[in-house]
Design a protein around this nucleic acid. Structure first.
Lengths: 337, 337
DNA sequence: TCGTTTACTGTAATCGATTACATCATTCAT
DNA sequence: ATGAATGATGTAATCGATTACAGTAAACGA
């Protein structure tokens, strides 16, 4: 592999000139430029990024931490980040943490070691004390989940507002016995959704029943959604609607209903969250709150770049638009039951 | 950020000693080691990977090219690669190509520029002449798809054998009018599956009907599967079974059947391929050929590492085990129809 | 016309690690 | 006891780019 020095020799100039030309720093006469380009061509020279990055003390890599890459919700965010990064000449290093804070921390060490210039944390639910230390020293932004107590810039949606809208929708349809399938995690999205669920019921004079509040596994697994839904549907009086905080859970709930011989939406309404995949794969198509996943990722990346170039003077919170998409899994409760 | 020189000064030794200790090269007396470790602790020193990688002329990064990261099939492969890479102290740089050879090539330039030490190509269908040039000079392996004409090491499954088994299964069930939904791409998996479909029918004395062979979109989209299935199910005589070369297509076919008022599997059998997600989300659970996606990724990474350390003396082809998983979407044809 | 700006180019230091080679003190084998 | 092997450590070159600084020549302004 040819080096810049060889190119310089071939073109009869100094390395400084070659470097200046390639980086558009300073000036180089057209004549010289031509000779240099010819030399580059001839030797098929490619700059050595190891050397360049070392010298400039930047890696042009951004770290992305996600619980996993197989959940389509994360995958779409990753997609958005990846495209935005590529657009700025950055590469995205993806680390999966499996929700393990230790692995998360280990990955963040990469910042200290100069393997990455910044990091985006997707759905990291630990606003631990130590995270703040990193965020203080390195460019870090959070995507989708965050700790409201901790001052780290983040991009998300308004989970409270979104849930409230769904609940208003269900109540407007005539539902009064509304259950919720939440999840066993400490995500801010989860708690905001549950809070909005309670608040909205209360505001409409409907007393929340504790047994209508179920918790699925922390990763919103289809199976746990199915089990919890079966339990909910076994309660007397049976809820007429189930609000699920993810589409996978909603899919589980629909399956549970079918296995119990109930029709969706005639016998029970199911509403999901995320609008990611599956929602229009099998009937009934799921009524759900759509999150702009790709855009969440993209904006996170832009926010990170802003943080890297402009320092800490960037907005603390960016909320993107959600949208309630009414499809087939919701209907007014059957009053004749 | 402390440098090794500062650590050396603090410990009263030379940088060479510190480096030797950290890299377990040569020998360092226990006494000195202790002082160095203390200094490292005190200054909270972290080696600068930019410098280290530059000096050693390796990036400890492997490139991963995939059409996208949202298709769960790719996502699971990515997962396997990521874990294997992390286990070897490598980071995985994921580039999405959108099936665009130009972007693929652009990404491979990273090898020349020393941004990555090797690359894994997932489902890249161009065994173009130029790819071989890269593979000749840099460690490159292919995962899942490959060009049989081109000598690049790859990891995949035996698509021909797998399809043959599925066809034998359908024929054993009693099906004779078997259709196939293939896809408009040049993947080796696609052509092997279609070939096995034809061959197996022929071997059983069943003349393949050209109108039973449909082609969905190149990315196996759910919608295109649905459209193609509707067309197939409109043919007289109607096929009693549809073999789909992906689960997403199978899901589309099932939806199509339902929309036409046909029951699966009573009226039509549907078989998928991949066993990735969705297959057990809604009834009928799909009968499918399971691919060990995660393992495909893992083995690809191991193969790449072998290529990087042992040079070109590595197996050209690695085939992993598939498995036909019979679930609910397949049954004998209804003889009373 | 003379001092000054501008355009262009080169020299050499620099980033922070790794490592070949040299040095010196022990330990060992005979 | 002596030359050799071994252990522990230091000196300094090196990787390939970027860039501060300096220098030269031409253009310019008054």
């Amino acid at each position: 592999m040819a080096t810049m020095a060889e190119v310089a020799r071939e073109a009869g100039v100094s390395v400084a000139t070659v470097s200046r030309l390639l980086n558009q720093q300073g000036t180089v006469s057209p004549n010289t430029a031509e000779r240099v380009y010819a030399a580059i061509q001839k030797l098929s020279y490619e700059p050595n990024l190891l050397a360049r990055n070392f010298r400039k003390s930047e890696s042009r890599v951004i770290l992305i931490l996600a619980p996993n890459v197989t959940n389509p919700y994360y995958a779409h965010i990753l997609s958005g980040i990846g495209d935005a990064a590529a657009g700025q000449g950055y590469a995205a290093l993806i680390f999966t943490t499996g929700d393990d804070p230790a692995r998360e921390r280990e990955a963040l060490e990469m910042l200290k070691k100069h393997r990455a210039d910044g990091a985006i944390l997707i759905a990291s639910d630990m606003g631990c004390n130590w995270l703040l230390e990193y965020a203080d020293r390195y460019p870090i932004v959070q995507c989708s989940e965050y700790d409201p107590e901790v001052d780290i810039p983040h991009v998300s949606i308004d989970n409270y507002q979104a849930t409230q809208e769904s609940m208003e929708y269900l109540i407007a349809l005539g539902h009064r016995r509304i259950a919720i399938i939440s999840a066993e995690n400490a995500y801010i999205s989860t708690s905001l959704r549950v809070k909005a669920y309670r608040d909205t019921l209360a505001r409409h004079g409907i007393a929340p029943r504790e047994d209508y509040i179920a918790q699925a596994s922390r990763d919103y697994s289809f199976k746990s959604g199915k089990w919890r839904a079966k339990e909910l549907l076994g309660i007397d009086p049976r809820p007429t609607a189930i609000f699920c905080i993810s589409d996978t859970l909603a899919l589980g709930a629909i399956t549970a209903a079918k296995e119990l011989g109930l029709r969706v939406p005639q016998d029970v309404t199911v509403v999901g969250f995320d609008d990611v995949e599956h929602t229009t794969m099998l009937h009934p198509y799921i009524t759900t709150v759509a999150q702009p996943c790709y855009e969440l990722g993209k904006q996170s990346a832009h926010l990170l770049f802003a943080r890297m170039t402009q320092g800490k003077e960037i907005p603390r919170q960016t909320l993107l638009k959600h949208e309630l998409i009414v499809r087939e899994s919701s209907a007014p409760p059957d009053l004749l039951e």
